[in-house]
Design a protein around this nucleic acid. Structure first.
Lengths: 146, 146
DNA sequence: CTTTAATTAGTAATAATTACTAATTACTTG
DNA sequence: CAAGTAATTAGTAATTATTACTAATTAAAG
């Protein structure tokens, strides 16, 4: 995806293609999400948009994100009970720090599961690696070594 | 793990080894979980134990499961906002039917992430494949072909 | 410009999980 | 074996992310 691909125009076209109306909240949400590859919870996204769109309700953000996920424009997965939306729809894995909650993409070494699952119609998958990020790992070492 | 390995005695030993007291609820929970490789939400497990242990509170089940996960005796991950506890601690993946909620183990084709993540201290990971199980796939085909 | 159905904002409801507390109980020590 | 005590439990209340509902608004078609 080349830089600046997600202009207001390309987003509008895409929304209409999927039968969704072009509204200010949707444009704002798509811009924020698609402009960069990033991870958002609905709440985080709502907080970031609040200054620019003070009347936008959390409800709208939740609904819109689920719609975007339904049409495959973004992906969603779950960490510790929180739904995370990911604008990177390519197959890839994630590393999550159980201490500071940092979440980063991993280059995928994924392959589809073996053929004995051929009867399933698998659509998407992500692996979530859980552990400690470099910073928290170091803190843990320092603390325990005291 | 050989059959019938998880007797009341082996469970007691293991709990004490980790500094946990041996109580009736813990024995019951461990027996149910470890006796077979299976997936449980806290609620499901509480429901299954209720007939035999009518006074056991949901709270106890939640707490105990988190303790068992903390000492690495079981694993936990999250599907659609529900925490699932897994007594199979070997690295493996899962397939989840987004329609009927069926969850099955997949033989793992997982490897640890590439070396550029070497600074992370990754502890565990599971990939969750989302899609349709054979039954729901067939239903979908039948319906749409009408 | 009108019409109409989709969308929105706001509020209320839901449901899984955690927090809190008094009573109980497993384990330790004498 | 008999306390003592600290962990554990059951029950209830609180929390929090998410969804449901509804009246008002608005995008898009005619």
């Amino acid at each position: 995806m080349q830089k600046n691909f997600w202009t207001e125009e390309t987003i509008s076209t895409l929304l209409r293609k999927h039968g969704l109306r072009v509204t200010a909240p949707r444009i704002a949400i798509c811009k924020q999400l698609l402009a960069q590859h990033c991870h958002y919870s609905a709440q985080q996204l709502h907080e970031e948009l609040a200054p620019l769109h003070p009347t936008m309700s959390p409800n709208t953000v939740y609904l819109t994100l689920n719609q975007l996920a339904a049409i495959g424009l973004i992906r969603s997965f779950n960490i510790d009970g929180n739904t995370i939306f990911d604008s990177n729809t390519a197959t890839h894995d994630h590393a999550h720090c159980r201490n500071c909650n940092t979440l980063v993409d991993l280059p995928s070494n994924s392959e589809m599961p073996p053929v004995n699952m051929g009867e399933w119609a698998l659509e998407w998958g992500t692996r979530l690696w859980s552990g400690l990020c470099p910073d928290c790992k170091q803190s843990a070492n320092t603390t325990s070594a005291s």
